[in-house]
Write a protein that binds this DNA or RNA. Structure first.
Lengths: 159, 159
DNA sequence: CCGTAAGCTGCAAAGCGTTTGCAGTATGAG
DNA sequence: CTCATACTGCAAACGCTTTGCAGCTTACGG
């Protein structure tokens, strides 16, 4: 038994839906598995063993994995898109985003209590007829590297 | 006395920092004031009275306003950037984002309790040496238009 | 094993939102 | 009213993402 983001599950899913397990896909999957943080398409590409794999293939694989719901897209600061393997069913986590260097760290667990979530859900359902499917909490600030010692020189990202 | 996002304050801020109050800037400000929801650069441009104002000027004005901290950038779904005038000092709000049409609605108030926020702050400060400056809660789902009646045909946005 | 259909890949070019260089225009201080 | 200079429109440059195409690979059946 394995969870949505595990290697075997994703590979099984591919086969199951008629997708082929090709060398680029396997390597991209391995990069995602090895990374503890969401990666951009370029970030994935940079980490690939085989540097001859084309960036276009990275994008195409991202699309396939998103379609399988094995991958989750996260909006980094300034509209950059990053991707990480999906959490096990039912679980989810949030992100600490450094506004200086853009680095994203995972925050294990969700600080929003069930009680509060249900209340908000009910409220917007009634007042706006908006149905909440998921939520995302972004904690924005300065990471260990960028904080201390009088603010690094690294440029703050543009919007 | 007026708050950060008010017309007079922004105009005063411009003068104060040596910026000129030009026709394009005034119109862009009025579009932002009139809109109840964050707008993209193209969205602002589309709503301008004078359609001869160049999109590049919209971008340049956005930069100026961001610099004055009179404008706030929001990441819409899929990396699109949208902008809205800043909240009064100290206040903040969150967003309901429709994953179908991309529309963003404001959620008045913040469901995260002080108690909880302080706890998370302390926790990541200690365990990761991450200093949280602000937080952003994104409630993602289906808006009134896109929900009911067997899901509209509008394409779900790409990542 | 080997042959084959169709899914994939690399490459290069096209798309799209955003930024920048430039020459001319308009603002606001004196 | 005059003038220095901040600002604007335009067009070209940019950087990331997507797409068309011809050839390569995978998975499946024999």
């Amino acid at each position: 038994m394995s969870s949505p983001g595990s290697r075997t599950t994703v590979i099984a899913l591919l086969a199951d839906r008629g997708y082929r397990l090709t060398a680029p896909r396997r390597q991209i999957l391995d990069v995602l598995l090895a990374s503890g943080t969401p990666l951009s398409a370029a970030g994935i590409h940079r980490r690939l063993e085989n540097r001859r794999i084309n960036l276009a293939s990275v994008y195409r694989t991202i699309w396939v994995l998103l379609g399988l719901e094995a991958l989750r897209a996260t909006d980094a600061i300034g509209g950059e898109k990053r991707f990480e393997l999906a959490d096990p069913l039912g679980a989810h986590h949030h992100h600490l985003i450094c506004q200086d260097c853009g680095r994203i760290e995972d925050l294990e667990g969700c600080p929003l209590e069930e009680r509060v979530l249900r209340a908000v859900n009910r409220r917007v359902r009634r007042s706006r007829r908006f149905r909440i499917v998921e939520h995302e909490l972004r904690l924005i600030g300065a990471c260990a590297d960028c904080d201390g010692a009088g603010r690094r020189t690294r440029a703050r990202r543009r919007p």
